[in-house]
Amino acid sequence: MMENVSFASTGAHARPVDLPVKMHGRKVEVFYGQKQALHGVDLEIPERQVTALIGPSGCGKSTFLRCLNRMNDTVEGARVVGDITLDGEDIYNKNIDVVELRARVGMVFQKPNPFPKSIFENVAYGPKIHGLAKNKAHLREIVETSLKRAGLFEEVKDRLDEPGTGLSGGQQQRLCIARAIAVSPEVILMDEPCSALDPIATATVEELIDELKQNYTIVIVTHSMQQAARVSQRTAMFHLGRIVEVGPTEKMFSNPDDKRTQDYITGRFG
């Protein structure tokens, strides 16, 4: 099943023209215990595009992102209502296995979190547990391509056996991206991937994200307006657990419909 959506901007819920929808959240509500963090969020995520989630902190961006690969399942007391589809299939359906889902929807976290193992093993871990490599040589190949795609291979090719935790912050984050793409996911979720990096490392990662969208659908949470403008094609503005505006990034930044979006991107709050 394939949903197509038009790109004509019609108020708060602008739809992209004729792009297949990879993931679709409808009326998503999330509760942490008694506290409601998301109040009915509707969002379409077009395939092979970068979708940016922006908004003041605490507005529920990470919460929504974690719904997309069910990482909220691991949060004590979290409850998700509403439905979210991946290729039209409800990911909260009983016959979807979360392990399989996470192999299809990978995640890169705010703080680089390589395993305290070698660079090689960091990247090889995913393919190993999912049985993606036919043999040792194939595994090596997967690791190398992933590192190349993450733009890290040239820097680490001579020290694949050294600890991943010994790399610089930017390199660690690219290692985490390589680790995520090694399992060949369809969607990659990134939660403020550059917030712990210096400007040069940030630029490298942004370039990388731009390249990755050839092959992957990317959802990125960012607190940097410039970053959202640079890397994304579509932007969703969150505020107090709701989406106040969503549309093509260009339009969001040049001519936002909502007053709150305008205030936020011009730095008047947030």
């Binding site: 990482m71 691991t74 996470r102 192999a103 995640m107 976290f109 979190n113 995913g126 985490c176």
Partner: peptide, 19 residues
Amino acid sequence: SIRAAALGLGASKNQMVFH
């Protein structure tokens, strides 16, 4: 963060614990 990394890659809970 290590647990999240493992689960995010699609490791089962058992694999997360033992690996």
